[in-house]
Amino acid sequence: MSKPVIATTSLAGCFGCHMSILDIDERILQLFDLVEFNKSPIDDIKKFTKPVDIGIIEGGCCNSENVEVLKDFRKNCKILISLGECAIMGGLPALRNGIPVEECLHEAYIGGPTVQLNTKHILPNDDELPMLLDKVYPCHEIVKIDYYLPGCPPRADLIWDALVALITGDPLKLPYELIKFD
């Protein structure tokens, strides 16, 4: 039976969850025996080259590109996992929710105390740029998500136990210390 295919992406996350995936340290070699990586920032595959079994999403959706990548993952992956607080509840970026997005742009490019250089008040405006959403959306409010691994970042052992259980079908017994929201 061919190895299950895994893909990962980081949307509006800080890449800390991917760092936590890599914190499984030497077990990454075991992981390469169990699974085959497809589209992911930690290898060179940039587009889905085959149907993927497990898609791991870090980060919520803060701009339009995040939404498109997330929908692309939903289309290509059988199972989607929300990894970390940002994917599950918007995380730290969601602290801007409720604040009009114009105020965030204004503070960063025009009104901020360290923005004297931007005399011509230039704002990021190019068709290639992703468009900022009105607020940060958790992934499961945009596409159907199958599993959730909380934490900021989720502990490496939690990711490891969950992945192995998912791949091998063994029952998942998560020790109390591993499920954390911080």
């Binding site: 339009s64 939404v67 009009p100 997005v101 114009e102 742009l105 204004h106 704002l123 990021p124 405006n125 068709d127 468009m131 900022l132 959403l133 009105d134 607020k135 959306y137 499961h140 409010e141 945009i142």
Partner: peptide, 21 residues
Amino acid sequence: QGFDMEASVQASCNYVGRVPN
């Protein structure tokens, strides 16, 4: 879940003077 992309990008595009694409 009721997510509406066009509506959601409206505010930021208006502010920077951009037509959503």
